[in-house]
Design a protein around this nucleic acid. Structure first.
Lengths: 244, 244
DNA sequence: TATATGCAAATTGTCGACACCTGGCTAGGC
DNA sequence: GCCTAGCCAGGTGTCGACAATTTGCATATA
């Protein structure tokens, strides 16, 4: 039984951590593991086990878990245990609706409120995504694409939209990872072009065109995911969230 | 020094509470106090003091506070203390933008997805608001109006929209309470009519009209708040969030 | 053999206590 | 008299332990 399952970036167990960094560490680590599916939906999280792995007491572990539960990434079963929030495929149409509207709202806002430093940031993320496509790195494509769109949203300057959008994109990461093996077609290159057009519209301050492009982009992505889902409905990973 | 500042609904201190109800109680109580401004923005929250008032240890108090902080209702100053989140008047235009879009999206969705039981619920809340207007009860108008629109949003069936909308309306409650003394004009009656039109459009399934009415309604409310703000910029309540 | 009942192990919810950090107060120096 | 440095108190972050509850298993019974 390993004392620390994820020993990544272990900065010395002897040095004592600073006073709030323990919770932060656990929070980020768990969040990362949930989003990249190394903790699959429905996995049970044992507080004692985690406290052993992180060399902390249960208190900071619990605080991190409460935060993640508030974000919807964890589901708490009272008096029983906490599990990674299952992916709700029933509500996927609702998800697509929200995602599409946020694509449009954030891109439109960006076209109105963009500033030079925003554009710089956006273009950097755009390049990162294009690079991931060039390297056929599906996993990196998912996260760089997410970062690109969040950068666009930040240029829009609406914290409410940005937060909801980031949450939706994160949730989408979990869905997309299920199909990442199918990413070797021509769609990613198409996305690069679409990103390019969107950036141009944002830079030109053309809100209507930015909105229109974002809607088309969202529609494209929704169709892609639906196509993947239709192709293989059973992906081998248990998504029901039921314990065993 | 009072042992329990808010003794409301004290169901006997001798009977032992069930195992998860303590946190829930503290969470709801604090949330309510924050939203109706009995805890003004910027107020410091002392964990020890609260644990005495609720007859609980600091652990459940902290859990409730972590949840509220995750929702943006509290702001945590690390190693110092936690304060009620200040109202950010700088970002108010951004808030109005998000609020308007959510008004539109939720009402439109409701027109598409409404079901008989939803309509029943909506109309009940609509009547409650009309009643509050009749009674010139400004405080009740604020909360029943919020509940009415949440009911509409729930008929839309999009959990993402509903959650963001509820959060925005709650935040709006704090702003509106600042001006509740100005609620004796004819606007509330106008809102009753607008609500009535919106319900009719939802019931008829006319998405475009519901959208349009919601946009007009939102615009009306935004104008009202802006007018109030222009009337008296200094309301006596400290909103800076600065301690003292 | 199948079903109901009681027990026991495991895990969470809560508690009281300690250590560390921050901010204010006091004392000393320029 | 004003500014700076050190001390003290208040409060948070973390810890280990206890209590309550649930799940699964073993046992007894029809």
């Amino acid at each position: 039984m390993a004392r620390r399952l994820p020993p990544a970036s272990d900065e010395g167990s002897t040095e004592r951590r600073k006073r709030g960094h323990g919770v932060q560490k656990v929070y980020e680590k768990l969040r990362q593991s949930i989003l990249d599916l190394s903790l699959p939906p429905g996995s049970p999280l044992d507080e004692m086990r985690l406290s052993e792995e992180f060399n902390l007491s249960r208190t900071p572990i619990r605080e991190a878990m409460v935060r993640l539960a508030a974000e919807g990434l964890l589901t708490t079963l009272p008096n029983r245990n906490t599990i990674v929030a299952p992916i709700d495929f029933i509500n996927l149409p609702v998800y697509f609706e929200a995602l599409t509207l946020m694509y449009r709202a954030t891109t439109r806002s960006a076209a109105v409120h963009r500033r030079p430093e925003h554009l710089e940031n956006i273009k950097a993320h755009e390049a990162a995504y294009a690079d991931a496509v060039q390297r056929h790195d599906a996993l990196d494509m998912i996260s760089t694409n997410r970062d690109f769109h969040v950068a666009v949203a930040e240029a829009g300057g609406n914290i409410y939209f940005t937060q909801l959008f980031a949450r939706l994109l994160d949730e989408g990461r979990r869905v997309l990872r299920l199909y990442y093996h199918s990413f070797d077609d021509d769609l990613p290159h198409r996305y690069v072009d679409e990103h390019n057009d969107m950036v141009a519209a944002v830079e030109a301050g053309d809100a209507d065109r930015a909105d229109q492009l974002a809607a088309a982009h969202a529609s494209q992505i929704v169709r892609q995911i639906q196509a993947y889902m239709a192709r293989d409905t059973t992906s081998g990973i248990d998504l029901s969230g039921k314990a065993k």
